[in-house]
Design a protein around this nucleic acid. Structure first.
Lengths: 122, 122
DNA sequence: CTTTTTATTAGCAAATAAGCTAAATAGCTT
DNA sequence: AAGCTATTTAGCTTATTTGCTAATAAAAAG
């Protein structure tokens, strides 16, 4: 379960152009998104999701992309799994499900006129 | 329709602790959320949504809260409507619906194994 | 065992963000 | 018009963020 701090970290991570593009790239890029070698869709731009492969799509130095990926990982938006000398990057869909649920509840409750006691932890 | 830039602005706005709390306060606080004088729920912390009323719940100077509110407004997360010499603040539920929809689609498509062509505009 | 590949860490500079106080603006209310 | 009330703007300081290059680490390949 994501607490308020977690959510703020997620929004902060997505509130930067470079990280948002990396996020989109990872979630919609059709990469081979796993060390289990799921096959990518061939029409799509990339073949793998190690740090270097992601960085190739951006005009920034590798350490810069590495740091952005770390921030996405710290926000639990992606996972990074080391295997041999590469790091495999995958979407963390669980986090996205929780965020999706938060907004769904917000909108739903608003439409129903539900009013909450303000809670500084969620 | 929110484009990529709009979304980044929304996430940036929500990715700050003070603004996130203001956002939660406005969306879940049960204020009298309109110049039409919708009645607030009496159990709830606040009675109105002018800038000063919001600021009372935070340990920051008024201009600081004012600037945060402007950022939430610029991100289309809230609306600010001037009436006489007060500004009435309301949730912009349309924006939240769009964001909710984005995450719902992301999660849904992921579960269905849908793969997109990377699109740098959405 | 040296080189290459993959990725991170360290340290720096420039830009941006977040807070403050003081001053300005705009509309009431006497 | 003088003085409130509500809000924003301006200008400043400090902290954080975002980029870079150089150096380091760890595993793979020759």
């Amino acid at each position: 379960m994501l607490n308020m701090e977690d959510k703020i970290k997620i929004f902060k991570a997505l509130g930067n152009e470079t990280r948002f593009k990396i996020f989109k790239n990872i979630f919609t890029g059709g990469y081979a998104c796993s060390i289990d070698d799921k096959q990518p869709n061939d029409d799509i731009i990339a073949q793998a999701t190690c740090v270097t492969s992601i960085a190739e799509h951006f005009d920034f130095a590798l350490p810069t992309i590495s740091r952005h990926l770390k921030e996405l990982k710290d926000a639990k938006i992606i996972t990074m799994t080391k295997s041999k000398n590469k790091i495999y990057i995958e979407p963390n869909i669980e986090t996205m499900k929780e965020i999706a649920e938060c907004f769904a509840v917000l909108v739903n409750d608003y439409d129903k006129g539900v009013v909450y006691q303000y809670d500084n932890t969620k």
